[in-house]
Design a protein around this nucleic acid. Structure first.
Lengths: 185, 185
DNA sequence: CATTTTCTATCTACTAATAGGTAGGTAAAA
DNA sequence: TTTTACCTACCTATTAGTAGATAGAAAATG
């Protein structure tokens, strides 16, 4: 099962680097030294591969959610920041951002998968916010889910813009900015 | 010079709907009833067309900037919100967002053009903020340009996520949220 | 003014490259 | 002996882009 993982890993890199419509089985085959037909053996269609890539992100996120569930809200929020900071460092972007602009061209299963992942991120962020409000480390927020979406959105697009600008430390001061906005008083 | 405009207009719609790599000369030719070779006559390469589309956005933005330059900061900010709200209503996205995820696959002139447009938007937003701070309708901000980037980013990605979710009123409460954050006291 | 020439915007017909995907064979492992 | 994981060889559709013809408009010339 090593090749299969390698395919998903390579597909992920290419997808996040170039977008969905600009990566091909040929790209992957050249990178890992395998024929395109062998990739079709593991993932009959490109949609299958796309879904697999997204599901890997879901799995990783769910692990992070589990692993940090007992940490204080501020610390969990920091994990979120760290995720986007690492992306920026590697000149990568969030997979939601990578795929979102091509959504109308995607096969239904891929659309479903990316929507599920996006919801997962937003749900997690929302729960961090509501926990923080409850514990009074964050100020009251009228619509926590909307605020969560706003935070995720800003991180997502900041990373995209940063890559355009060849800036790989775009989020150095952003967490502070967001935290200030969330702090009560 | 009507066909040329029609090509740019159609290309823009397709680009914003499907992304850069998922729209083709054939798509355009079918939509406006012309052969692909005729499009090549007006725009020899796809990069030429891409640049033309982006430059139309730049021109429109510069017009808005000019037209509103004497309005109060809050009103100008509202124009910005309105722009993104209209996009969301039409299930479209900001051209920066549409192109950003494919940036590594783009021809240099297209990259340069989109970066210029992006900077134009950020510059304008920054000047709205600094004017507002000066006139004391907005609270003091340590890094206005960063704040501007954050605002634009959140709008850009909110619109993208909204289209994924088939939500075409995603920005109903966002302007209020941003304004609260900017208001002094 | 009439004619010739050039220019503009389109067309038909083509190319080489690439896309995702399929059919069927094969060697080794289970 | 069946399954797994690869291979070669192919297919059809599409891509961006080119070459060359043509009809009509505009401009230059006698």
């Amino acid at each position: 099962m090593e090749t299969k993982d390698q395919i998903v890993e390579t597909a992920n890199t290419l997808l996040v680097e170039r977008g969905y419509n600009a990566f091909s089985y040929k790209n992957i085959s050249e990178k890992i030294g395998i024929k395109t037909s062998s990739i079709h053996y593991h993932f009959p269609t490109k949609a299958d591969l796309g879904v697999a890539v997204i599901q890997k992100h879901v799995a990783a996120l769910q692990q992070t959610i589990q692993r940090t569930k007992n940490e204080p809200p501020a610390s969990r929020l920091n994990k979120l920041f760290l995720y986007y900071q690492r992306l920026a460092n590697d000149s990568k972007v969030c997979i939601v951002g990578a795929i979102a602009s091509e959504i109308t061209t995607l096969e239904a299963p891929v659309r479903t998968a990316i929507l599920a992942f996006s919801n997962c991120v937003i749900d997690w962020t929302t729960s961090i916010l509501t926990d923080g409000i409850e514990q009074q480390v964050f100020k009251k927020i009228t619509h926590p889910r909307l605020k969560a979406k706003q935070i995720i959105s800003s991180l997502m697009a900041l990373v995209q813009i940063a890559r355009m600008e060849n800036d790989n430390q775009p989020l150095d001061q952003i967490p502070q900015l967001i935290l200030e906005d969330l702090t009560p008083e």
